[in-house]
Design a protein around this nucleic acid. Structure first.
Lengths: 195, 195
DNA sequence: GCTTGATCTGAACGCTCGTTCAGTTAATCT
DNA sequence: AGATTAACTGAACGAGCGTTCAGATCAAGC
């Protein structure tokens, strides 16, 4: 019972990653077995190994692709301007991007400890690069006199923690719209770094 | 080779909880086996069941005790005063309390999904009670004109996310002292809700 | 000094884990 | 039509899982 119709590799491959992303985000890496991923895809566990060398690589690839796409997207969304303008762009971009990909951010920030050492180091570089983008904006704002941020690195961590938190409780169709949430968060962030 | 000297129950019991807390926080609930906890304690796996009915209860008890102690401690730290004074007390209390117990907060916010339904509901009540304390302060500040917070519930979530983030990167002996971190975070929070 | 009972061991239970692989199927190529 | 091969199955591997329990050990009470 294999190869029912057409070539499946380019269909099953993404399905494997999608299933892994969904299940890792929902139950956590350690709690998800290869058999559960396979069942979600509609395939036997052995077939997964046509698309990933092992379970660890599945997690690593998900995180790496996510971080690279995130950096790419922010690179395009950062259209310059004054530090306050760039900070607003960052806040809105960050919230918007992650509300569209709650599973990705959940994994990116909660499953770091399940990466082995080499993989962790590689992801950490990408994560720091993203954080550095925010730090740069804060420092530019300090220099221009728009911001009064005593420690840009600390403030960047605080800001990202705050913005990330939104994905843990926001649900579409809830009390507040995305637009409202985005604006309120941006307003809090704006005031928190203001001169 | 049992019962080497003196009664051990009141020694081993806390040791089991301490080991579980430490390992759950470091590796995650699903990734920690009863045998690993036992090894940390210096005992065979079977002996753990003299101190907990099962693994799930171990997690639940840790979280419940933590939340109850947290609510207790905040009840004592909240000495009243104006909304800004109470908010400062909250921010400093929250950071201080959690920096002293990084493992506890890590578990309390990351292992919720590993609680079964009934246990989750019970912990959720306690967590909401704590959050409500902050919401009350923000609402009081709105009423007094000290704060301008369009949505106190959302602002409370944002604030707690931000404050919690500190435990993910702060390390004693690092670039910044606890005192400095506490003050900078409080300053950001203060400005973010200011009228 | 003998009994009691709290404390723990060590082996076992059935189960699931990640991973491998020989074999099967069916779409494609010649 | 026959050969090829990508895609997948199904069974198996050793290991580890949570949990149970009969038995061993030793401090304490009589």
């Amino acid at each position: 019972m294999a190869r029912k119709s057409g070539s499946h590799a380019d269909i099953t491959g993404p399905k494997v990653r999608d299933a892994a992303l969904k299940l890792f985000a929902r139950d956590g890496y350690a709690a998800v077995s290869m058999r559960k991923i396979a069942a979600e895809v509609g395939v036997q566990a052995g077939a997964l190994y046509l698309y990933t060398p092992d379970k660890q690589s599945l997690l690593f690839d998900l995180m790496k692709v996510h971080m690279e796409e995130l950096l790419d997207a922010w690179g395009q969304a950062d259209t310059g301007g004054s530090p306050p303008e760039r900070l607003e762009a960052f806040a809105r971009f960050h919230i918007h991007y992650h509300l569209d990909r709650p599973d990705n951010i959940f994994i990116a920030y909660m499953e770091l400890r399940n990466l082995d050492d080499a993989n962790f180091a590689e992801i950490e570089v990408l994560r720091r690069r993203y954080e550095q983008g925010l730090i740069d904006i804060l420092e530019a704002g300090n220099a221009s006199g728009d911001f009064a941020v005593p420690d840009p690195k600390l403030a960047a961590m605080a800001a990202i923690s705050m913005l990330n938190g939104v994905t843990t409780w926001f649900r579409d169709g809830g009390r507040l719209s995305r637009e409202t949430v985005e604006t309120i968060y941006w307003d809090m962030l704006r005031k928190s770094v203001a001169a």
